[in-house]
Structures are given as structure tokens and as C-alpha cells.
């Protein structure tokens, strides 16, 4: 083994890497928040929608679940270019991740909705709530409790998937790492540190979600 490890440039750039890690976290959280809203809408569309609404929901969900995430990113990145729509790298990653998250979450939410007894809805309506009120105040809070764990997993996946931003020129953690690595040719060192940062981010998310679960689901 005649390879000399050079960690100094990595540690010099560490603050920037951690900052890029925040960008990763930011895009993942944002895609998750939008994905949750869209996912709920898709789940309801698939279960209760009219035929065209159901087709849209099924097409979205099955496309998101049955094609590679990288394909989805490329589609938002290059495919839309065919229609003269050019997104910035940030929006490519955000839209790709959101599309994917919404598809997976919709199926989780559908399972959650189906686990709530019909009588809950009827009881809420009997008490004079509108359909929207019943969903927002009675059904969805219960669904969230059921899908909390899968949602946490999806959040972790969102962070891991955001690393694909590197391939569409987005400067999140992976993209930034590649930029630094190609400047210094210390590819292994940079990516090793990045791997550690990803690991820490994932563990922080899991820890945070556990604490949040204790606060939220005390009863």
C-alpha cells in the first residue's frame, strides 16, 4: 500500500461541507413537507376520487414507485427541457424528490386511512363537522399516528436520495464534495468524510423523530 492519505484539505473545507449538509437537509425537509401534503391528496384521490382523478393518482404513485429515483431526477432535469422548461438544479432535485416522496407517502397514507374505522368519519359528521373538518380534525391526526414510522423512514430516504443532486449539478452535500474532490483529487478522503456526515444526519433525524414521537404520542 503506497497511498498517502491527505486529510488536511478535507478538514480545511469541513465548514463548507457541513454547510452543504444543511442544504441537503433543507431540500429533504422541504420535499418531505410538500410530499406529505401531495401524498395525502393523492391517497384521497385514489380512494375517493372520480375516475380521472383516480387515474392521475394511480399513474403518479406507480410511476414514482416503479422507476429509479435517478430517472425521475433526469426527467425533471432533461426531459422537461423538451418542452422548453428548464429548471435550476435546486428545483430539479426538489421536484424529483417531492414527486418520489409523494408517491411513496401516498401509499403509506392510503394504508393509514384504511386502518381508520368508517364510523369515525360518520361520528364526526353526525356531530355537525363538515367533510373537511372531519378529515383535518379527526381522521388525519389518527392517520399520522399510524404512518409516523414509515414517514420517518421516508425522510431518511429523502436525505439519501438528495445525494443524486450530484449528478444534475446541484451543490448539496454530495455535489459540493465532488466539487472539492475534483479540485484536489483527494476523492477518497472527501467522500469518506461526506459518508460520515450523511451517517450523522441520518442518526440525528432518527433520534429527533424518536424524541418527537415521545412528545406527540404520550397518550
Amino acid at each position: 500500500m503506497d497511498y498517502n492519505f491527505h486529510w488536511r484539505p478535507v478538514f480545511r473545507d469541513l465548514p463548507e461541507l457541513i454547510e452543504a449538509g444543511l442544504v441537503t437537509l433543507q431540500v429533504a425537509v422541504l420535499s418531505m413537507l410538500i410530499g406529505i401534503v401531495v401524498g395525502i391528496v393523492l391517497a384521497i384521490m385514489r380512494m375517493k376520487g372520480t375516475a380521472p382523478a383516480r387515474w392521475v393518482a394511480v399513474a403518479w404513485i406507480e410511476l414514482a414507485r416503479n422507476t429509479p429515483a435517478l430517472f425521475q431526477l433526469f426527467f425533471f432535469g432533461f426531459g422537461l427541457g423538451a418542452f422548453g422548461l428548464h429548471l435550476s438544479p435546486f428545483f430539479i432535485v426538489l421536484s424529483g424528490l417531492t414527486f418520489n416522496n409523494a408517491g411513496y407517502l401516498a401509499e403509506n397514507f392510503r394504508g393509514g386511512f384504511q386502518a381508520i374505522p368508517e364510523t369515525q368519519m360518520r361520528a364526526a359528521r353526525c356531530l355537525g363537522m363538515t367533510a373537511t373538518q372531519a378529515y383535518v380534525r379527526i381522521i388525519i391526526p389518527q392517520v399520522f399516528r399510524i404512518v409516523y414510522h414509515p414517514m420517518t423512514n421516508q425522510m431518511v430516504w429523502a436525505v439519501l436520495m438528495s445525494s443524486l443532486g450530484m449528478l444534475v449539478g446541484f451543490r448539496e452535500l454530495s455535489g459540493e464534495t465532488q466539487f472539492f474532490a475534483s479540485r484536489t483529487f483527494r476523492i477518497f478522503e472527501y467522500f469518506a468524510v461526506t459518508a460520515v456526515i450523511y451517517y450523522v444526519i441520518v442518526k440525528l433525524i432518527l433520534g429527533f423523530s424518536r424524541v418527537l414521537a415521545m412528545r406527540l404520542f404520550r397518550y
Binding site: 500500500m1 497511498y3 445525494s163 459518508a195 451517517y199
Partner: peptide, 18 residues
């Protein structure tokens, strides 16, 4: 807990080292 893409790049660059 580590993105697959990072694992690939890491191993691809680690293999020649060993």
C-alpha cells in the same frame, strides 16, 4: 445510512488504494 452513490464512489476509489 449512507447514500448508495457515496458508497459506490468510495469503494471505487478505495479499491486501488488496497
Amino acid at each position: 445510512s449512507i447514500p448508495l452513490i457515496i458508497q459506490l464512489v468510495l469503494f471505487y476509489n478505495f479499491a486501488p488504494i488496497i
